[in-house]
Amino acid sequence: MAKVGLFLGCITPLRYPGIESSTIDVLEALGVEAKILQGTSCCPAPGVFRSFDQEVWRALGARNLALAEEQGVEILNICNGCFGSLSESSHQLREDPKKLEKVNNILSQIGKKYNGTAKVRHFAEFLYRDVGLENIAKRVKNKQDHLKVAVHYGCHFLKPRMLKEIDDPERPKILDELVEVTGAKSIPYKDKQMCCGAGGGVRARTKDVAQKMTIQKMENINEVGANVIVDVCPFCHLQFDQGQEEVETKVPVLHLSQLYVLAFGLPKERMGVEAHAIPVNF
Protein backbone atom coordinates (compact mmCIF):
# COMPACT_ATOMS: atom_id res chain seq x y z
CA MET A 1 0.00 0.00 0.00
CA ALA A 2 1.26 3.47 -0.89
CA LYS A 3 2.57 5.86 1.75
CA VAL A 4 0.28 8.85 1.91
CA GLY A 5 0.65 12.45 2.99
CA LEU A 6 -2.57 13.97 4.24
CA PHE A 7 -3.24 17.29 2.48
CA LEU A 8 -4.99 19.54 4.99
CA GLY A 9 -6.27 22.36 2.81
CA CYS A 10 -8.11 25.23 4.56
CA ILE A 11 -11.62 24.33 5.73
CA THR A 12 -10.65 21.09 7.45
CA PRO A 13 -7.92 22.44 9.76
CA LEU A 14 -9.51 25.88 10.23
CA ARG A 15 -13.27 25.12 10.51
CA TYR A 16 -13.82 21.37 11.00
CA PRO A 17 -10.59 20.08 12.57
CA GLY A 18 -12.54 17.01 13.70
CA ILE A 19 -12.33 15.80 10.08
CA GLU A 20 -8.53 16.01 10.39
CA SER A 21 -8.34 14.03 13.66
CA SER A 22 -10.96 11.51 12.51
CA THR A 23 -9.06 10.87 9.27
CA ILE A 24 -5.78 10.37 11.14
CA ASP A 25 -7.41 7.88 13.54
CA VAL A 26 -9.26 5.99 10.81
CA LEU A 27 -6.15 5.62 8.63
CA GLU A 28 -4.19 4.38 11.63
CA ALA A 29 -6.91 1.88 12.50
CA LEU A 30 -6.76 0.56 8.93
CA GLY A 31 -2.98 0.17 9.08
CA VAL A 32 -2.28 2.85 6.47
CA GLU A 33 1.13 4.49 6.61
CA ALA A 34 0.06 8.12 6.73
CA LYS A 35 1.48 11.41 7.89
CA ILE A 36 0.45 14.99 7.39
CA LEU A 37 1.98 16.61 4.31
CA GLN A 38 4.05 19.40 5.83
CA GLY A 39 4.22 23.05 4.81
CA THR A 40 1.34 23.18 2.33
CA SER A 41 -0.79 26.24 1.50
CA CYS A 42 -4.31 26.51 0.12
CA CYS A 43 -4.58 24.03 -2.79
CA PRO A 44 -5.52 26.86 -4.12
CA ALA A 45 -9.30 26.60 -4.16
CA PRO A 46 -10.70 25.81 -7.62
CA GLY A 47 -13.82 27.97 -7.44
CA VAL A 48 -12.30 31.22 -6.32
CA PHE A 49 -8.58 31.30 -7.07
CA ARG A 50 -8.71 29.40 -10.35
CA SER A 51 -11.46 31.80 -11.41
CA PHE A 52 -9.30 34.79 -10.53
CA ASP A 53 -5.96 33.80 -12.04
CA GLN A 54 -4.97 30.38 -13.37
CA GLU A 55 -1.25 31.31 -13.41
CA VAL A 56 -1.01 31.69 -9.63
CA TRP A 57 -3.39 28.76 -9.14
CA ARG A 58 -1.10 26.45 -11.12
CA ALA A 59 2.09 27.76 -9.51
CA LEU A 60 0.84 27.42 -5.91
CA GLY A 61 -0.62 24.02 -6.80
CA ALA A 62 2.76 22.95 -8.18
CA ARG A 63 4.44 23.97 -4.93
CA ASN A 64 2.07 21.67 -3.02
CA LEU A 65 2.70 18.88 -5.52
CA ALA A 66 6.47 19.40 -5.22
CA LEU A 67 6.21 19.05 -1.43
CA ALA A 68 4.60 15.62 -1.87
CA GLU A 69 7.40 14.57 -4.22
CA GLU A 70 10.04 15.76 -1.73
CA GLN A 71 8.33 14.00 1.16
CA GLY A 72 7.97 10.76 -0.85
CA VAL A 73 4.22 10.38 -0.46
CA GLU A 74 1.04 10.31 -2.52
CA ILE A 75 -1.17 13.32 -1.75
CA LEU A 76 -4.28 12.18 0.09
CA ASN A 77 -7.15 14.68 -0.09
CA ILE A 78 -10.09 14.78 2.29
CA CYS A 79 -11.68 17.65 0.37
CA ASN A 80 -13.20 17.48 -3.11
CA GLY A 81 -12.03 21.04 -3.80
CA CYS A 82 -8.38 20.30 -3.01
CA PHE A 83 -8.67 17.02 -4.92
CA GLY A 84 -10.17 18.84 -7.90
CA SER A 85 -7.59 21.61 -7.90
CA LEU A 86 -4.52 19.43 -7.51
CA SER A 87 -5.78 16.84 -10.02
CA GLU A 88 -6.47 19.57 -12.57
CA SER A 89 -3.29 21.61 -12.05
CA SER A 90 -1.06 18.51 -12.17
CA HIS A 91 -2.89 17.35 -15.30
CA GLN A 92 -2.38 20.70 -17.04
CA LEU A 93 1.30 20.75 -16.12
CA ARG A 94 1.92 17.20 -17.27
CA GLU A 95 0.13 17.86 -20.58
CA ASP A 96 1.74 21.18 -21.43
CA PRO A 97 5.55 21.42 -21.30
CA LYS A 98 5.40 25.22 -21.70
CA LYS A 99 3.21 25.62 -18.63
CA LEU A 100 5.46 23.24 -16.70
CA GLU A 101 8.58 25.16 -17.68
CA LYS A 102 7.00 28.44 -16.66
CA VAL A 103 5.90 27.07 -13.29
CA ASN A 104 9.28 25.49 -12.61
CA ASN A 105 11.02 28.79 -13.37
CA ILE A 106 8.89 30.32 -10.64
CA LEU A 107 9.45 27.40 -8.25
CA SER A 108 13.22 27.69 -8.76
CA GLN A 109 13.05 31.01 -6.90
CA ILE A 110 12.13 29.06 -3.77
CA GLY A 111 14.45 26.12 -4.49
CA LYS A 112 11.71 23.76 -5.59
CA LYS A 113 10.81 21.76 -8.68
CA TYR A 114 7.71 19.86 -9.75
CA ASN A 115 8.67 16.70 -11.65
CA GLY A 116 5.17 15.60 -12.62
CA THR A 117 5.31 12.41 -10.55
CA ALA A 118 3.21 13.33 -7.50
CA LYS A 119 0.09 11.18 -7.29
CA VAL A 120 -3.12 12.95 -6.30
CA ARG A 121 -5.55 10.74 -4.38
CA HIS A 122 -8.92 11.14 -2.68
CA PHE A 123 -9.54 9.63 0.78
CA ALA A 124 -12.68 7.75 -0.34
CA GLU A 125 -11.12 6.45 -3.54
CA PHE A 126 -7.99 5.39 -1.62
CA LEU A 127 -10.07 3.50 0.94
CA TYR A 128 -12.06 1.76 -1.78
CA ARG A 129 -9.15 0.81 -4.03
CA ASP A 130 -6.11 0.43 -1.77
CA VAL A 131 -7.64 -0.66 1.54
CA GLY A 132 -10.72 -2.41 0.18
CA LEU A 133 -14.26 -2.92 1.46
CA GLU A 134 -13.38 -6.29 2.98
CA ASN A 135 -10.66 -4.86 5.18
CA ILE A 136 -12.88 -1.96 6.18
CA ALA A 137 -15.69 -4.39 7.05
CA LYS A 138 -13.34 -6.34 9.32
CA ARG A 139 -12.67 -3.17 11.31
CA VAL A 140 -16.38 -2.33 11.88
CA LYS A 141 -17.21 -2.88 15.56
CA ASN A 142 -20.40 -0.90 15.95
CA LYS A 143 -22.93 -1.53 13.21
CA GLN A 144 -24.47 1.78 12.18
CA ASP A 145 -27.83 0.27 11.24
CA HIS A 146 -29.69 3.14 12.92
CA LEU A 147 -28.44 5.50 10.20
CA LYS A 148 -30.50 6.31 7.12
CA VAL A 149 -27.93 8.12 5.04
CA ALA A 150 -28.31 10.73 2.34
CA VAL A 151 -25.00 10.21 0.56
CA HIS A 152 -23.63 13.40 -1.00
CA TYR A 153 -20.80 12.84 -3.47
CA GLY A 154 -20.12 16.47 -4.29
CA CYS A 155 -18.91 17.55 -7.73
CA HIS A 156 -15.12 17.49 -7.83
CA PHE A 157 -14.78 13.96 -6.46
CA LEU A 158 -15.83 12.22 -9.70
CA LYS A 159 -15.89 14.94 -12.37
CA PRO A 160 -14.44 15.39 -14.91
CA ARG A 161 -14.88 11.66 -15.49
CA MET A 162 -11.96 11.32 -17.93
CA LEU A 163 -9.53 12.90 -15.49
CA LYS A 164 -10.70 11.27 -12.26
CA GLU A 165 -11.47 7.76 -13.60
CA ILE A 166 -13.06 6.73 -10.29
CA ASP A 167 -16.71 5.99 -10.97
CA ASP A 168 -19.60 7.00 -13.23
CA PRO A 169 -20.46 10.54 -12.08
CA GLU A 170 -24.11 10.15 -13.12
CA ARG A 171 -24.70 6.78 -11.39
CA PRO A 172 -21.90 6.24 -8.91
CA LYS A 173 -21.83 3.56 -6.24
CA ILE A 174 -18.41 3.91 -4.62
CA LEU A 175 -19.48 6.15 -1.76
CA ASP A 176 -22.74 4.28 -1.15
CA GLU A 177 -20.72 1.09 -0.73
CA LEU A 178 -18.25 2.80 1.59
CA VAL A 179 -21.18 3.98 3.70
CA GLU A 180 -23.11 0.70 3.69
CA VAL A 181 -20.09 -1.32 4.80
CA THR A 182 -20.72 0.22 8.24
CA GLY A 183 -24.23 -1.28 8.36
CA ALA A 184 -25.83 2.08 7.60
CA LYS A 185 -28.40 2.30 4.81
CA SER A 186 -27.85 4.64 1.86
CA ILE A 187 -31.24 5.97 0.82
CA PRO A 188 -31.82 7.05 -2.78
CA TYR A 189 -33.18 10.58 -3.15
CA LYS A 190 -34.13 12.94 -5.95
CA ASP A 191 -31.25 14.79 -7.60
CA LYS A 192 -28.73 13.03 -5.41
CA GLN A 193 -25.85 14.03 -7.73
CA MET A 194 -26.76 17.72 -7.56
CA CYS A 195 -24.23 20.26 -6.29
CA CYS A 196 -24.53 21.52 -2.67
CA GLY A 197 -24.46 25.09 -4.02
CA ALA A 198 -21.27 26.35 -2.41
CA GLY A 199 -18.68 25.89 -5.18
CA GLY A 200 -17.35 28.15 -7.89
CA GLY A 201 -17.11 31.14 -5.57
CA VAL A 202 -20.94 31.22 -5.45
CA ARG A 203 -21.19 30.93 -1.65
CA ALA A 204 -18.72 33.79 -1.20
CA ARG A 205 -20.26 36.07 -3.82
CA THR A 206 -23.99 35.26 -3.86
CA LYS A 207 -24.80 33.36 -0.68
CA ASP A 208 -28.54 33.44 -1.40
CA VAL A 209 -28.05 31.45 -4.61
CA ALA A 210 -25.91 28.84 -2.81
CA GLN A 211 -28.54 28.71 -0.10
CA LYS A 212 -31.40 28.09 -2.55
CA MET A 213 -29.57 25.11 -4.00
CA THR A 214 -28.94 23.67 -0.55
CA ILE A 215 -32.59 24.10 0.37
CA GLN A 216 -33.62 22.21 -2.80
CA LYS A 217 -31.29 19.39 -1.83
CA MET A 218 -32.65 19.41 1.72
CA GLU A 219 -36.26 19.13 0.51
CA ASN A 220 -35.28 15.99 -1.38
CA ILE A 221 -33.27 14.61 1.53
CA ASN A 222 -36.08 15.20 4.00
CA GLU A 223 -38.63 13.71 1.63
CA VAL A 224 -37.02 10.27 2.05
CA GLY A 225 -36.51 10.62 5.80
CA ALA A 226 -32.72 10.48 5.96
CA ASN A 227 -31.32 11.11 9.45
CA VAL A 228 -27.76 11.99 8.42
CA ILE A 229 -25.89 13.40 5.41
CA VAL A 230 -22.53 11.79 4.69
CA ASP A 231 -20.07 13.74 2.54
CA VAL A 232 -16.42 13.54 1.48
CA CYS A 233 -15.75 17.27 1.25
CA PRO A 234 -15.46 19.83 4.07
CA PHE A 235 -16.84 22.60 1.84
CA CYS A 236 -20.04 20.65 1.06
CA HIS A 237 -19.96 19.73 4.76
CA LEU A 238 -19.88 23.41 5.73
CA GLN A 239 -22.59 24.31 3.25
CA PHE A 240 -24.96 21.62 4.57
CA ASP A 241 -24.07 22.24 8.21
CA GLN A 242 -24.44 26.02 8.04
CA GLY A 243 -26.95 26.27 5.20
CA GLN A 244 -29.96 24.67 6.90
CA GLU A 245 -30.99 27.70 8.99
CA GLU A 246 -34.24 28.06 7.04
CA VAL A 247 -34.90 24.31 6.87
CA GLU A 248 -37.44 23.05 9.40
CA THR A 249 -36.14 19.48 9.78
CA LYS A 250 -32.40 19.85 10.17
CA VAL A 251 -30.30 16.85 9.22
CA PRO A 252 -26.85 16.48 10.83
CA VAL A 253 -23.76 16.11 8.68
CA LEU A 254 -20.83 13.69 8.90
CA HIS A 255 -17.68 13.43 6.83
CA LEU A 256 -16.99 9.81 5.86
CA SER A 257 -14.03 9.79 8.28
CA GLN A 258 -16.34 10.75 11.15
CA LEU A 259 -18.78 7.96 10.22
CA TYR A 260 -15.88 5.51 10.39
CA VAL A 261 -14.88 6.78 13.84
CA LEU A 262 -18.36 5.74 15.01
CA ALA A 263 -18.32 2.42 13.14
CA PHE A 264 -14.81 1.43 14.20
CA GLY A 265 -15.48 2.36 17.84
CA LEU A 266 -12.65 4.94 17.87
CA PRO A 267 -12.63 7.80 20.43
CA LYS A 268 -15.70 9.88 19.64
CA GLU A 269 -14.24 13.01 21.21
CA ARG A 270 -11.82 13.20 18.25
CA MET A 271 -14.75 13.71 15.85
CA GLY A 272 -14.83 17.37 16.79
CA VAL A 273 -18.59 17.64 16.39
CA GLU A 274 -18.61 20.68 18.68
CA ALA A 275 -17.67 22.63 15.54
CA HIS A 276 -20.92 21.58 13.88
CA ALA A 277 -23.84 24.02 13.77
CA ILE A 278 -26.34 21.13 13.65
CA PRO A 279 -25.85 18.89 16.70
CA VAL A 280 -24.59 15.37 16.02
CA ASN A 281 -26.03 12.95 18.58
CA PHE A 282 -24.93 9.53 17.40
Binding site: P46, G47, H156, E170, A198, G199, G200, V202, T206, A210
Partner: peptide
Protein backbone atom coordinates in the same frame (compact mmCIF):
# COMPACT_ATOMS: atom_id res chain seq x y z
CA UNK B 1 -22.97 38.87 -12.85
CA UNK B 2 -24.16 35.68 -14.54
CA UNK B 3 -20.59 34.67 -15.29
CA UNK B 4 -20.20 34.13 -11.53
CA UNK B 5 -23.31 32.00 -10.95
CA UNK B 6 -21.65 28.77 -12.10
CA UNK B 7 -20.72 26.55 -9.13
CA UNK B 8 -18.27 24.59 -11.34
CA UNK B 9 -20.27 21.40 -10.72
CA UNK B 10 -19.29 20.19 -14.22
CA UNK B 11 -22.65 18.55 -14.95
CA UNK B 12 -22.61 20.36 -18.31
CA UNK B 13 -19.11 19.07 -19.14
CA UNK B 14 -20.24 15.57 -18.28
Amino acid sequence: DELWLCTTCMTCDE
